[in-house]
Design a protein around this nucleic acid. Structure first.
Lengths: 218, 218, 218, 218
DNA sequence: AGGTAATCGAGACGGTACGTCGCGTCTTCAG
DNA sequence: CTGAAGACGCGACGTACCGTCTCGATTACCT
């Protein structure tokens, strides 16, 4: 759904015969993304309209419709740029437990940033609209899930005997690790306190130990 | 925000001297709630309009606006009626572990029911609109949280030495218990598999044991 | 259409066995008429609503609908009471010419009074609504026309040789006499200046003389 | 108030540098005017709604509101186009008396035409609404009055000694000439019979003779 | 250098739903 | 039975954005 930048969209019908005329203006693209971002943070998703974005960005409506399908598509575009690095795993800084705690804390902080609000809005809208859900889950969320599995997997490999870390286990542990944080944010809208971060991190490590030592799971 | 039924709204200044004239029609109220519920399930939140509800319910738009502030307000009304019992704790049926697993399974099933879809839509909209968030969290979600704490507390009291169950511990455990389920549903939109239910239930009991036996956490 | 007061309307089904319960409250009737009158003068016809009248008069809407068919019907009621005497012919005060001038002047003044504004509004609405037109023309205007013919006829009888005054002539002369005044008011909305009053009065007398002396009309 | 066509409205600040983008669609304008005209004649002023016009014209409501302030404004627009020529003075065809009679007859016929019904409705509404009154009287009626004065003046100049025709006299005579016709139509809603036309025409000429021969009135 | 083909601003246009107003009917209760 | 209060179905109001479209002006590439 989202129109990404680097890999130009598939609308180049004949890539051999490069076409004449001006190319897509990068400044316009950024103006739209920033306008959308600002308006979302300032006035909320409901007040975010294509006409409003166009006016704020000093751009014609048609120009927006040329490159994005909807306001959701614009937000998906901003998310791809901004959220990936904020949710990156930076392991190997200290002990596995410290690393895990640090990462969770960064996830917790992320929701307070603009990019976090964009994601919160998109997650919200995904509950209301199947197309948004498909775009978000088929794109960013799927990739992020992969990064989370890889990140947690690497960390556990470091903490435990490597051979015992199997993928299905890590997959489950990701749910147990991130679930409580998202629950706090999405359901209760409360900031995530340090205690929850610490408890969850320690819990998952404990559990990983237990699972790998006994392995009673079907 | 929501117009509740049994406890009449605060506009009765003097319940003794009730005013003259016709009273609010209960049949109209139900027609609206059912129409909203049906349309949400059939066509989704985006296609849910006040005009659509009015037409489906065979009711005038003005009548809806007289009693509800918005379509969100209508959904909040349906939630209060329907979701409470679906998320009730019915403990004392078997072993603590079985009881907990049963309850989680009912929570998991709940999201597939109409009332669950209403709640999912409301949680989604709460990410987009502060007023919805305030209404939902200040009303249903707060009460449900209390019921969850009471329910899990009672269950743990049965499972462990009663004196050791303190409220703050239970509060945390509720997050760890329900977080992964909501995460699955809200973020990935996937049905909750039995494995996650079992793992989570067992995990929380394990954790409760650990916390109460070793140290009560700072 | 208009509910008149003295000759009770035809809704008394059995005039012999007089019915039980309270009779129509005259105070309610007057409150409604005055409220309608006041609102018309203060805010204009467009802002004159049944609900507004009811509120102003401290009366329930149903009470109004019980006795009048529409807001036009209310205005017709006020007109009957007030306009008749304002447009009465009071001849025999002086010379025929003076009498005629005086009468025209009173007609001119009438439009500035509340009752005149009611009539102006009704004449306006009669252009827009056939039912209003029928009620107004079949009732008040027809009667007023008769009074005008009688009045002018009597005056001309005094001024000319009695035998020569025939009804068809007077009928025409009424148009020529009042037409210019109504034209000024209804079409141009201007106050009627004394010059027009004098000219018209004199003109009609001149014309009457001419017609009766030569009588060339078919 | 009325959006006129030929003399483009004053919103062109610099007619040389005309703005970019699509221009006002003339076909839309005509569709709206015709729809309004038709509906007025078919169903009357009360049943004439913006929504009805929009539907009949196959046009969006917003498009109507973009160019006209109200349904009255639309009717004013149709009037400007249609009524002017119907009420034109075409003198010099025959004797002054014949010319005058012919003109009055055309005025009489005018009220039966669609354009005449539009004008009747506007005159009616002008009694009920000050803004309508101001627009109508400040625009069409003022111009028509000028044309009437010019037309009657030219005719009298032909009929009498030119030097004796002064403007104030003609101004009065216009009232005396047209007043009775409008009185018949607006107050009694009756068609204008030939007799009234002939009488009025002859009367005004007689009067003009008298005024110019004897004294020019204070 | 000119032609060609795209982008871009502006905004008119047919729509849908909004939230409000007043209509005329109806129901309830007090006197 | 009257009358105040007001809920109800209804229709139109005037507004906000939607997504599509038509303009003219402005580039950038390609003969």
């Amino acid at each position: 759904m989202s129109a990404t930048r680097k890999p130009q969209p598939a609308c180049d019908q004949h890539p051999v015969i490069s076409r004449t005329g001006p190319r897509r203006s990068e400044s316009v693209r950024l103006a739209v993304l920033h306008a959308a971002d600002d308006l979302l943070v300032e006035r909320g998703f409901a007040a975010l309209t294509i006409e409003g974005i166009a006016q704020r960005a000093g751009v014609a409506k048609q120009t927006i419709y040329r490159w994005w399908k909807s306001k959701v598509d614009i937000l998906l575009d901003t998310l791809t740029d901004d959220a990936r690095e904020a949710l990156e795993w930076r392991t190997g800084q200290g002990s596995p437990e410290d690393d895990l705690t640090d990462h969770l804390q960064r996830v917790a902080d992320f929701f307070a940033e603009p990019a976090g609000q964009v994601m919160q809005a998109l997650l919200g809208h995904a509950q209301l609209d199947k197309e948004t859900a498909a775009s978000l889950r088929g794109g960013f969320l799927r990739e992020q899930r992969e990064r989370d599995i890889a990140g947690l997997g690497a960390l556990l490999t470091r903490a435990l005997a490597p051979a015992t870390v199997d993928d299905r286990l890590v997959d489950h542990l990701v749910d147990l690790l991130l679930g409580p944080l998202y629950y706090r944010v999405l359901v209760f809208g409360k900031p995530i306190d340090k205690e929850l971060v610490n408890t969850t991190a320690r819990l998952v490590l404990t559990l990983a130990h237990e699972f790998t030592s006994t392995e009673p799971e079907a």
